[in-house]
Design a protein around this nucleic acid. Structure first.
Length: 965
RNA sequence: GCCCCCGUAGCCCAAUCGGCAGAGGCAGGCGACUUAAAAUCGCUCGAGUGCGAGUUCGAAUCUCGUCGGGGGUGCCA
C-alpha cells in the first residue's frame, strides 16, 4: 500500500491533467471573442486590454503522431498565450492542420485508403496528443486546409492573384511605387489606348486568345512552359527538395529528368524589392532575414551592350563590376541562349587557337556538339564537375566598348541561362571563374585593379584597390577606388548609350502546380480555344472530386519521353463540363485544370482564416483583421528611421526549415491582398521566432546500421567515459533529429504516462534557450517532476491530503525573494526566456519549502499564478484547493512591489588591479566618495597599495577597483 | 569557396552597460527515511569560460587570429 497517498506522482498528475483539460473544454475557457463578423461580440472584446495573436506553424498530420521534438514550440506559444491572458489581453491562439500533401497521398496509394480518411484519422491522433499536453487553443478556429469551407478561400485568393497585375508605377500609401491592381484596370488601359499592345494593334482587333496571351504577360498568376523534375518511375513531378544530389528521387531512387511542361507560375519576382526592403520593418531573427535577402539575391550593377564585329547582333551582359570593363578580354554566352545561333560563324576566323575549337572543323559543328553535350548534363552534373571550365569559340568577336578591342565570344556552361542576361563579359583579372576560363583557353589577362604586393600572381584579385589600365578618350578610372570607379563607368556607359545601372535578382517566379491528387483544385477552366478562365465566386468551392484511382500513372523509369498524367485527368466527367461563367456568352464547353496546388497554398494564409474562420462573406472581416493584426502606432525596435509598423501576427514560432520558402510565399500573398485592399497589414508576421531542435541520441552498430535507441544500455567504461551496448554489441552514440530514420523516436505519450504533461512542458522549456538545439535526456526529466512535487508539498500534505500552507504573513526575507522572482519572471516570459523563468521559480519554490510553519499563502499563491502558464494543470488544481472557485486562467499576473526589490545593504567587492582582494557590506545608497574612503581604509588594501595609488575606479555600490602606482 | 551562429563544471545551461564566473536542473558524493531497495528529503563536491594574441583599471562578454561544432548558400557574373 502506498504510504503517501497524496503524493504528486505521474498517476495523480495524469488524473489532475485530464480533469482540467475536460473542464477547460466544457467551459470554453479559451475562446477569444471577435469584434466583428459572424461571432461579433464587441462588448466582451472591449473588456480586454488589447489583443495578442500567438501563432505556431501548424502541423502536417503525420501517421506517426507527435514525437517529443514537436511540442517545444507549441509549449512556448501556450505559455505565452496563457501569460498574456493573465496580463488582461484578448489572446487569439489556435492550431489547425496543414492536411493536403504528398505523404498522405503516398500512404493512401500504399494502403488503398482514401487520403481524406487517413488524414482525418491522423488528425484525431494528433489532436488527442495535443489536448493531453494541455494546450489552451480556441478550438473553434482550428481550421483544416482540406475542408471545402477553407479551400474555397484558398481558391478565392488564387483568383484574386490571377485577376491582378503589378503596376510598377502605381503609388503606394507608404510612399513607394508599385502595387497589384485588378486586371480589369489593365484591360481598360489597353481598351482606351493609354497602354499600347505589344504589336501595336488596337485591343479590339486582337482575337480573344491573343488578348489572353497579352494579359498572361502581366497576371500575377499565369501559365508558362517551365522545366520541372519529372520521375517517370514514380509517375509524378517532384519538388527540388525531393531530388537527391545524385539526381534521383528521394523515394524509390528513380531517375529524375528535367522536362518542359505547362505550369502555373506566381509572379513573386514583381515583389522582390518590397520583400527585401520590408524585412527591415519586422522583428525577426537576423539570421532569417539574411537567409531571405540571400534568397531574393538583389544585386546592383550595370547592363552593358557589346556590338558584335561585322554583325547587327548585340550582346547584353549584366555585371556587378562595371569598373572592370577595361579588363574584358572575352565574352561568354550560355549554351541555351537563343543568341548563340546568330553568333556562329561559317569558318574559324584568323586567330582561332586550337584549344578553342573543340576539335571541330567549323564553329557550327563545335557549337552544336557542345550545346548537345550541355543539354544532356543535369544541373547536378554541371555542378559536380566543379571548376573545370569547358566551352567552345563561336567564331564571332565582340567589341569591348571601353578599349575598342575585338574580343572572342565563347559558349560555355559556367554561364547560366537563368541568371542575369545569360551572357557575361569575361574579366579574368578580377573574377576567379573568368581567370580559370582564360587560363584553360589561353586568353589574355589584364588587371584593372591594382592588387596588393602580397597577392598571389596566379589568381584573380577581387578585392578593393585603385583602378589601373582603365583610360580611353572618353573616360579614365585610373586611381579611383572600386565604388567610385563603378559609378564613373556607369555614368560614362549611360552617356554613350552603351549601358545603364541595373538591378537583378536571384529570386525566380514560383512554380505553383503539381500533378497530384491530394491538393486544392485550381478554380480555372479552359475554353475550346485553350483560353483560361477563372471561375466566378459563385462556383466556389470547386471541390476535389472523388476518383476511383488517385495514384499517378507510372512509366518505365528511364523513359524520358513519357509525360505525367495528373490523377484528376482521369475523372473525365469532372474535367469536361458545360458551364455558364456569367460572362454573357452563355453555356459553353470547358475543360478543367487537372493540376492541383502545391502544399504551400493552404499554409500561405491560414493565419488569416484563424481570425474569422466561419465568415461566409469574406476571407476575413476587415474589422477583425484590423483588430488582430493591423498596424500598430509604433514601429518595431531597431526599425530604420521613419519606418511604419507593417502589422502582422504578434508572435510566430516555428522551425527554421521554413525560414525561406513558407515565410516568403506567405509574405507575397499577404502583400497582394494588402495591395488589393483586403488587408490593412502589409506583412503577415510582425515577430517571428525560430525555435531550436530537440535532438535525441541515436546509436549505430559496427556496420553503421541504426539500432533501436530505447534498447541501448549505457555503462561507465574503464576511463569513466560512457559506453553503449545493444544486445551485448558495442554501439556508438550521436545526436540527431528525433524520428524513425534514426530509430530514436520518443513519444510524448510515454512522457505523459511516466511523468505527466506538466512535467514534460517544464522539462522541454527548462532545457535551455528556446532558440538553441539541445539534446534530450529522459534521465533528466525527473528534475522537473521534483520541482512540481515540491510545489505540491508546499500546499498539500502528502499523507493526509490536507492543506499545509501557512496563513501568517511572510517574512521580509521571503517577500524580497518573492518580488525579485516576480520581477524577473515577468521579464523572462516577455523575452521568451523560459529556462531562466523556470530557474527563478524553482529558487522561490525551494525557498518556500524551508519556511518553518509552512509556506505562507501570500507567497504560495503568486508562485502558483506565475507557474501556471508553464504547468497549468497542477496550478489550477492547487489554486482550487486553496479555495478559489474560478479558473486562474484570467487571474491577474502578480506585480512586483518595487519596495522589495531594493536591498538595504549590498556586498561591495574591492579589487586591486582587477583582482578581488576584499569585500565590504555597505548601504546600497552609499556615495562614491564614502565608498572610496572605506575601501582604501581596509588594512589589506592599504598594504597592497602602499607604494601609492594611481587611480581608483568606483562603481557604487557594488565595486571599487584600486590601481596602484 | 562565401555568409551566419555557437564553444562556460562529467552533462544540459545562467551570468543587465565590460565589474565577485553560478541562478536552476541532471549525474556524482555524504546523510535521513526503510528490514532492504526504489522513490522521496536534506546537505555537498565541482570549471576560470576551446586555444593564442590585443584593447581596458578590469574581458565569458569587445577586436584580431586559430581550432572544433551547427546552419544557410553555392560557377548568381
Amino acid at each position: 500500500m502506498n504510504d503517501t497517498p497524496h503524493r504528486y506522482t505521474a498517476e495523480l498528475a495524469g488524473r489532475i491533467e485530464t480533469t482540467w483539460q475536460d473542464r477547460w473544454e466544457e467551459q470554453q475557457l479559451f475562446r477569444a471573442p471577435n469584434p466583428a463578423g459572424p461571432w461579433a461580440d464587441p462588448e466582451t472584446v472591449a473588456r480586454f486590454d488589447g489583443a495578442m495573436f500567438v501563432l505556431d506553424m501548424f502541423p502536417y498530420p503525420s501517421g506517426k503522431g507527435l514525437h517529443i521534438g514537436h511540442p517545444l514550440g507549441y509549449i512556448a506559444t501556450d505559455v505565452t498565450a496563457r501569460f498574456n491572458r493573465m496580463l488582461g489581453k484578448n489572446v487569439l491562439y489556435s492550431l489547425g492542420y496543414d492536411a493536403f500533401g504528398l505523404p498522405a497521398e503516398q500512404y493512401a496509394v500504399q494502403t488503398g485508403q482514401h487520403p481524406r480518411k487517413t488524414t482525418e484519422d491522423n488528425i484525431v491522433v494528433m489532436a488527442r496528443q495535443l489536448k493531453r499536453l494541455g494546450m489552451s487553443y480556441d478550438d473553434r478556429r482550428a481550421i483544416r486546409t482540406i475542408d471545402p469551407d477553407y479551400y474555397r478561400w484558398t481558391q478565392w485568393i488564387f483568383l484574386q492573384i490571377y485577376n491582378s497585375w503589378y503596376d510598377e508605377n502605381a503609388p503606394r500609401e507608404d510612399g513607394g511605387r508599385g502595387r497589384a491592381r485588378p486586371i480589369a484596370e489593365l484591360v481598360a488601359q489597353f481598351e482606351s489606348g493609354e497602354r499600347a499592345t505589344p504589336d501595336g494593334r488596337a485591343w479590339e482587333d486582337l482575337t480573344e486568345p491573343e488578348r489572353a496571351h497579352v494579359l498572361d504577360e502581366h497576371r500575377l498568376a499565369y501559365t508558362s512552359q517551365a522545366p520541372v523534375n519529372w520521375a517517370p518511375g514514380l509517375g509524378t513531378v517532384l519538388s527540388n527538395e525531393e531530388v537527391t544530389n545524385e539526381g534521383r528521387s528521394e523515394r524509390g531512387n528513380f531517375p529524375v529528368f528535367k522536362k518542359n511542361l505547362r505550369q502555373w507560375m506566381m509572379r513573386i519576382t514583381a515583389y522582390a524589392d518590397r520583400l527585401a526592403d520590408d524585412l527591415d520593418r519586422v522583428d525577426w531573427p537576423e539570421k532569417v532575414r539574411i537567409m531571405q535577402r540571400n534568397w531574393i539575391g538583389r544585386s546592383h550593377g550595370a547592363s552593358v551592350r557589346f556590338a558584335v564585329d561585322g554583325s547587327e547582333t548585340v550582346l547584353e551582359v549584366f555585371t556587378t563590376r562595371p569598373d572592370t570593363l577595361f579588363g574584358t578580354t572575352f565574352m561568354v554566352v550560355s549554351p541555351e541562349h537563343p543568341v548563340v545561333d546568330r553568333l556562329v560563324a561559317d569558318v574559324w576566323p584568323e586567330g582561332t587557337k586550337p584549344s578553342w575549337t573543340g576539335g571541330a572543323n567549323t564553329p557550327a559543328e563545335a557549337v552544336d556538339a557542345y550545346r548537345l553535350a550541355a543539354s544532356r548534363k543535369t544541373d547536378i552534373e554541371r555542378q559536380t564537375e566543379g571548376k573545370d571550365k569547358t566551352g567552345v569559340f563561336t567564331g564571332s568577336f565582340a567589341v569591348n566598348v571601353a578599349t575598342g578591342e575585338r574580343v572572342p565570344v565563347f559558349v560555355a556552361d559556367y554561364v547560366l541561362m537563368g541568371y542575369g542576361t545569360g551572357q557575361v563579359m569575361g574579366v579574368p583579372g578580377q573574377d576567379q571563374r573568368d581567370w580559370d576560363f582564360a587560363t584553360a583557353f589561353d586568353l589574355s589577362i589584364v588587371r584593372t585593379v591594382q592588387p596588393p604586393p602580397d597577392h598571389d600572381l596566379d589568381t584573380a584579385f577581387t578585392g578593393e584597390g585603385p583602378a589601373i589600365n582603365s583610360t580611353n578618350d572618353g573616360v579614365s578610372l585610373d586611381g579611383l577606388g572600386v565604388a567610385e570607379a563603378k559609378a564613373r563607368m556607369t555614368q560614362w556607359l549611360t552617356e554613350i548609350g552603351a549601358g545603364e545601372e541595373t538591378v537583378t535578382y536571384k529570386l525566380r517566379d514560383w512554380l505553383f502546380s503539381r500533378q497530384r491528387y491530394w491538393g486544392e483544385p485550381f478554380p480555372v477552366v479552359f475554353d475550346e480555344d485553350g483560353v483560361a478562365h477563372g471561375l466566378p465566386d459563385s462556383m466556389l468551392p470547386l471541390e476535389l472530386p472523388d476518383v476511383p484511382d488517385y495514384s499517378p500513372k507510372t512509366f518505365d523509369p528511364e523513359d524520358n519521353s513519357s509525360e505525367p498524367e495528373a490523377p484528376l485527368a482521369r475523372a473525365t466527367d469532372w474535367v469536361e463540363v458545360d458551364l455558364d461563367l456569367g460572362d454573357g456568352k452563355g453555356m459553353r464547353r470547358f475543360r478543367r485544370e487537372t493540376n492541383t496546388m502545391p502544399n504551400w497554398a493552404g499554409s500561405c494564409w491560414y493565419y488569416l482564416r484563424y481570425l474569422d474562420p466561419e465568415n461566409p462573406d469574406a476571407v476575413v472581416d476587415p474589422a477583425n483583421e484590423e483588430y488582430w493584426i493591423g498596424p500598430r502606432p509604433a514601429p518595431i525596435a531597431g526599425a530604420p528611421e521613419g519606418a511604419v509598423d507593417p502589422g502582422g501576427v504578434d508572435l510566430y514560432i516555428g522551425g527554421v526549415e521554413h525560414a525561406v520558402l513558407h515565410l516568403l510565399y506567405a509574405r507575397f500573398w499577404h502583400k497582394v491582398l494588402h495591395d488589393l485592399g483586403y488587408l490593412s497589414s502589409s506583412e503577415p508576421f510582425r515577430k517571428y521566432f525560430s525555435q531550436g531542435y530537440i535532438q535525441a541520441p541515436a546509436y549505430q552498430d559496427s556496420r553503421g546500421q541504426y539500432v533501436e535507441a530505447s534498447e541501448v544500455i549505457e555503462t561507465a567504461g574503464a576511463d569513466g567515459q560512457p559506453e553503449f551496448t545493444w544486445n551485448g554489441e558495442p554501439v556508438t552514440r550521436e545526436f540527431g533529429k528525433v524520428g524513425k530514420s534514426l530509430k530514436n523516436m520518443i513519444s510524448p505519450d510515454d512522457m505523459y504516462a511516466a511523468y505527466g504533461a506538466d512535467t514534460l512542458r517544464l522539462y522541454e522549456l527548462g532545457m535551455g534557450p528556446l532558440e538553441a538545439s539541445k539534446p534530450w535526456e529522459t534521465r533528466a526529466v525527473i528534475g522537473s517532476q521534483r520541482f512540481l512535487q515540491r510545489l505540491w508539498r508546499n500546499v498539500v500534505d502528502e499523507e493526509s491530503g490536507e492543506l499545509v500552507v501557512g496563513e501568517d504573513d511572510p517574512s521580509a526575507e521571503v517577500l524580497r525573494v518573492l518580488h525579485r522572482t516576480i520581477d524577473a519572471v515577468r521579464a523572462d516570459y516577455v523575452s521568451l526566456s523560459f529556462n531562466t523563468a523556470i530557474a527563478r521559480l524553482t529558487e522561490l519554490n525551494n525557498a518556500l519549502t524551508k519556511v518553518s510553519g509552512g509556506a505562507p499563502r501570500a507567497a504560495v499563491e503568486p508562485l502558483i499564478l506565475m507557474t501556471a502558464p508553464l504547468a497549468p494543470h497542477i496550478c489550477e488544481e492547487l489554486w482550487a484547493r486553496l479555495g478559489h472557485v474560478e479558473s486562474l486562467a484570467y487571474e491577474a499576473f502578480p506585480v512586483a512591489d518595487p519596495a522589495y526589490l531594493v536591498e538595504d545593504t549590498v556586498t561591495c567587492v574591492v579589487q586591486v588591479r582587477g583582482k578581488v582582494r576584499a569585500r565590504l557590506e555597505v548601504p546600497s545608497d552609499i556615495a562614491e566618495d564614502a565608498l572610496r574612503e572605506r575601501a582604501l581604509a581596509i588594512p589589506k588594501i592599504a598594504d597592497q597599495v602602499a607604494g601609492g595609488v594611481r587611480t581608483v575606479i568606483v562603481r557604487a555600490p557594488k565595486l571599487v577597483n584600486v590601481v596602484p602606482a
